[in-house]
Nucleic acid binder design. Structure first.
Lengths: 236, 236
DNA sequence: CAAGAATACTTGTATATACAAGATAAGTGT
DNA sequence: ACACTTATCTTGTATATACAAGTATTCTTG
């Protein structure tokens, strides 16, 4: 086992103490100077340990006051929304996709608002079904602002996903998501090849570039076949 | 407007270039030495800018090679699972909760496995309904490992949530979540006061402490009343 | 020509130092 | 007793320096 760097040793020491319950929530942890004395390192090295643990949400710091164990309540648990193609490939499935629609339409009110364009103006729309082992796993309905991706309709989406293409032509600056449980309508049932009605997970994703709202996508998956996962660790 | 620190100015300079598309994905960005020359700062200051942007996922670094614009694909989008009481209070709603059940039961197989205890051994179970303006918003069914929280049944959960109590007595080291869309069964409909069947969002959360699995919770909300939100920004 | 050594560049770790700025407690003068 | 100053602790920013270690190129040598 190779020796760990000093700042990592100090990080581990702090985490151990918090894990063991020796240092409770909101309690003060040793200052930079105390740590540098205790571990015989420079203040900057002790500082690095404290700073990185602060960055990762384990500690909070306050100039003049000291460094404290962060409240667990504020440690938000995060869920990861992953690229479905990657997810399928990672678990060894066979990923394919079918482009059901790739067209230019007039924006109806809610979509015009979501994209920040005039009502009835022309926008692009694509519907793509993502399959795992030839069974529909997710349908992606996407509305695109043509001003920011004028060549959107001319692309081939059998290899690169719309999301990948869009991040290339309009660098992503922000993305917002909501996740809901919905009952699929007839159209969605048809897309997903569902016979009986079962609930679906719907992820709505809006993405911004520096020039404005790029696209608005609905990702819908059958509740029985798809789930989002995420975990929060204390390590590192 | 107060002047920004130098490392922050360099961070901003880098982000501007990526946002504007001048520095594309996987392209090299200036090295620590180049930046320290260009901005007339020490290498450590330039280094801080690059390190922090790496930490936040904007850049990737490789010893001996250089620093590169991270691929947008790898920028995982994160969803936040928040405390429901906080969420309700934050949007100005009136939060209340009702403890429907607080008991000790024998673990059936799937729950025993999830908690890592022997089958048929005694475990604790609580069912709590969280209300916003006196309307049920979420039901929380929780199974607790008694070895790690022996006083669980004696607590008053009208003020502090079970999750808060558990993080106090058994410091959290890890949490795993899955999110699914499900159809509620009769029991859940009753708890949530739902008449007609509508889909629900189910979050399953398992939490670990250093001594083992602490608890296993199902958080179920009507799809029409609850959604998860999250966003990913490029700033800072 | 090809294998290995020297090199120049990169990031990574670590130190010593300086001053700024926020927070608190102790001391001082009126 | 009160307001003010001072001292001392904390974190925050910034620099100059040193060496380690990974990568790629160039040069040397057989």
């Amino acid at each position: 086992m190779t020796e760990q760097p000093k700042f990592a040793q100090i990080k581990q020491y702090i985490i151990e103490n918090i894990r063991a319950g020796a240092w409770q929530e909101h309690q003060r942890v040793p200052s930079e100077n105390e740590l540098s004395d205790q571990f015989q390192v420079s203040r900057m090295t002790a500082r690095r340990a404290l700073s990185e643990l602060t960055e990762s949400g384990v500690l909070t710091r306050s100039q003049g006051l000291g460094t404290f164990v962060a409240s667990f309540k504020s440690q938000s648990s995060l869920l990861e929304i992953r690229n479905i193609a990657d997810e399928v490939k990672e678990r060894g499935g066979d990923y394919t996709c079918i482009v059901l629609s790739l067209e230019s339409i007039a924006a109806i009110a809610p979509i015009a608002i979501a994209l920040g364009v005039e009502m009835d103006s022309l926008i692009y729309r694509s519907v793509i079904v993502h399959n795992e082992n030839d069974a529909p796993l997710q349908v992606e309905e996407r509305f695109v602002n043509p001003a920011l991706a004028p060549q959107y309709l001319q692309q081939d989406y059998s290899n690169t996903t719309p999301h990948e293409y869009l991040t290339q032509v309009a660098p992503l600056t922000e993305a917002r998501h909501t996740v809901e449980a919905i009952m699929p309508n007839e159209e969605i049932c048809q897309w997903l090849g569902m016979f009986n009605e079962e609930p679906c997970l719907q992820v709505i994703r809006r993405t911004w570039s520096s020039q404005g709202i790029v696209s608005f996508a609905r990702l819908i998956s059958p509740g029985s076949k798809y789930r989002l996962g995420g975990h929060l660790t204390f390590k590192k």
